[in-house]
Structure formats: structure tokens, C-alpha cells
Simulated scan of single mutants.
Amino acid sequence: MSADTVALAPTLDRDRTATLLGRTMGLVGLTAATFTLGAYLARGLSAGWGWLFFGATVACLLALNTAVKRSEPTAVGLLLVFGASLGAALAPTMAYYAGADPLGLVLAAGATALFITGFGAAGYATRRDLSGLERTLFWALVGLAIFGVVLIFVELPGGALVYAVVGLVVFAGLTSLDFQRLRRSGDIKTAPLLAASIFLDILNVFELFLSLFRGDAD
């Protein structure tokens, strides 16, 4: 291997990483657009339809894991359907918040943008391997989901606030981990799957901030 080849390798790696970053974030933007479209078109549907669309969302996400390895156009198509289905599933919730507190939506969106940018940049830039946190974050997320279900049936003083704060801590780790995966992968085929994961980070962080700004966590 020549000295020129050795010198060229890091440059090619950086180019692949930059391409993957641009591709992934572009797909995140497209997913956000289809999410918004789905939420708008399904704004008048009943909650029963929401469950149906949620099932379609899960199906798209599972199919996406397989499609990424076989066909990029299919994977991108599934990603966009995933965004639209998720938007339709959450349409009643989004419509409620938009009507009840538009300012809360704006504040939550701004806080989410700062949060994702900050922790995403930290995860992308750090040299420390964050993969060791993956199992811990997964079980923390499972625990958070269980706690959320408990709060539906049992009123705990300050429970909603604890849920929101702990949730933000968990998604700070998940966001950093996803952006580190983005930097370390370099495989453009993984862009749709990474975009789905990052979009879910964004959506969950947005909902957590929304509960804080609306005072649901009081």
C-alpha cells in the first residue's frame, strides 16, 4: 500500500460519513414532511383509526429493517409511509395540542431543535464509544414505558414531571448514540434506518417537552 493510498483513506472515510450524514438528515426532513401530511389528512378521524395507523407504523418499521439490506428505493418508500402512518396515528393528539396551546407547540418545537442539535452534535463528535450504553438505554426506555402506563391508571404526585425529565435523560443518550452510529457506519444503505431512529428520537423529545411546556408535568 502506497503512502498516497494511506493518506487518501481517511479522506474517503470522511467523504462517506459526510454523504451519509446529508442523506440521513435529508430523509429525516422528508419523514417529518410525510408525518405532517399524515397528521393533517387524518385530523378529523376517530381514535380507532389512530390504532389502525399505529399498527401500520409498526409494520413499516419492521419491514424497513429487512428492506434496508435488499432495496434502497423500497426502504425509502417504507420510511415515508412510516412517517405518514405515524402522523395519522398521532393526529388527534396533535390536533388537541394545536387547539389548546399553540404557543406550547412552538416552544416545544424550539426546545426540541436545540436538544437534538446539542446532543446529536455531542454524539457525532465524541471519540468515546457509546455502544456500551445501548443495553442500559434500552432497558431504561422499557422502564420508562412501563412507568408511563402506570401513570395512566395511578395518580402519583409529581409522576408526570419525573416521567418527562427521566425521558429527556434517556433520549439524550439515545440521540447521542444514534448520531455516533451515523458517523461510524459510513454505509449509505443504512440511511433510511438511521433516519427512522433519529426521527423517533425527535418525536419523543418533542412530546416530552410539550408535556412540560403545557404544564402536564405539574
Rank of each mutant, 00 (worst) to 15 (best):
L8V: 09
A196S: 14
A18I: 07
V205H: 12
A18L: 13
W139C: 10
V166E: 03
G215T: 09
W139R: 08
L103T: 14
A122C: 04
L182M: 08
L174E: 04
A125F: 10
G48R: 00
T19D: 13
L194F: 00
T19K: 15
F209R: 10
A7T: 02
T117Y: 15
Y96T: 12
A33Q: 02
I146K: 00
F119Y: 13
G104N: 10
L41M: 12
G173F: 06
L41N: 09
A113R: 01
I116E: 00
A111Y: 12
L45K: 06
W139V: 15
R135D: 05
A111D: 06
I188S: 14
S2K: 09
P92I: 04
G120D: 08
L200T: 08
A140P: 04
G215H: 04
G118S: 09
D201S: 02
V205W: 08
R135P: 00
A39P: 03
F199H: 09
A111V: 05
L62V: 14
L21T: 15
F171S: 06
G83F: 07
D216E: 14
K189R: 15
R70V: 13
G50R: 03
R181Q: 13
T36H: 10
L41E: 12
Y163E: 07
T190F: 03
L133F: 15
R127G: 15
R14N: 13
I188F: 01
K189W: 03
I202G: 03
T11R: 15
A47V: 13
T126V: 08
T66V: 11
A3K: 08
A113L: 15
F179Y: 10
T36G: 12
L62W: 12
A164N: 12
G99Y: 09
A75H: 04
G158F: 01
L203Q: 02
A164Q: 07
T74M: 15
L133K: 11
L52D: 07
K189G: 00
L52A: 13
G77L: 12
A217N: 11
L210G: 09
A191V: 03
S131L: 04
G143K: 10
S197F: 02
Y124C: 01
A42I: 02
Y97S: 11
V76I: 15
L80V: 03
F53Q: 07
F153W: 09
I188K: 07
A145H: 02
V142L: 14
A67M: 06
L182N: 04
N204M: 11
T17S: 14
T11D: 10
T34W: 06
D101M: 01
T66M: 06
R23T: 15
V205N: 09
I202E: 00
A56E: 07
G159D: 01
E72P: 01
M94E: 08
A172P: 03
G110N: 04
R214S: 10
